[in-house]
Amino acid sequence: MEIEAEANPMDKYLRADRIPHIWCPGCGLGIVLNAFLHAIDELKIDMDELAIVSGIGCTGRIAGYINCDSYHTTHGRAIPFATGLRLANPEMKVVVISGDGDLFAIGGNHFIHAARRNIDITVIGVNNYNYGMTGGQLGPTTPLGARTTTSPYGNVEHPFNLCHVAHASGAVYVARWTVLHAVRLKNSIKEAMNKNGFSFIEVIAACPTTYGRRNKMPTGLDEMKYYREHSIIRHGIDPSQANIEIGKDIIVGKFIDIEKPTYSDAFEELKKRVKK
């Protein structure tokens, strides 16, 4: 039976007075937000103990929609801000949700070092292959050959394989999903948030307005259909084997899940030694 409704059960996690969100029709960001809210719902996280930190860009706006302590920081600096917040307030679960440009171009240095230090935060990096908010410019993940407003003749730069970067930098949990894998994404977010240490999930998301339109996938649906036809789940694969290239399959799955002491664990140990 079809019933007309006024509110969604997930609304309780949203800042109702800030909805509707700013994202375009067909944009994958709403799905990322949705999967995240389902994950915290299933984890039964106390919203008073959750902090979301984001940088700048379309993804950066996620922080403002979730009804918890949320910090919308400067471009690229979400991770160091989150580092300070997490270390100063170890009671908080700190999640960084930001875009590919924010986390891996202007903020790339912070990403690798937070992963290296094993700061106990979860980073959800939404990869839509371009800078959406500023009008669709080339980003650090734009596939070779793709057209953007600053690569009008096709991109000549090699993109980052974000999961490989995360793994090489020392992340204890690395997974990649597309927004079509919403349920698996939700499950991955749950796992990552339960992980002690630096966990990273790359989410491939559609950006029809500024990326898809210039790359023969003008609607979100076109991109979603592409994911259906071209993604292959390969759990445990070496992330270096999971490059993203135009016309090739997108390898998704949980690639890395290891244990090692976090910065906080090590620093607490150090403090005990110092005080003796």
């Binding site: 930190v53 160091p80 270390l87 307030n89 240095n109 620093f267 005080k275």
Partner: peptide, 28 residues
């Protein structure tokens, strides 16, 4: 560490400044 505080050496000054803002909102 003797005063139950936290010291962290960041990767650059951009990060250092961002980290202290985050820690300030964390209550320190």
């Amino acid at each position: 560490p003797q005063e139950n505080g936290i010291f962290i050496q960041m990767e650059d000054e951009l990060a250092s400044m961002a980290a202290i803002l985050g820690a300030s909102w964390g209550g320190a």
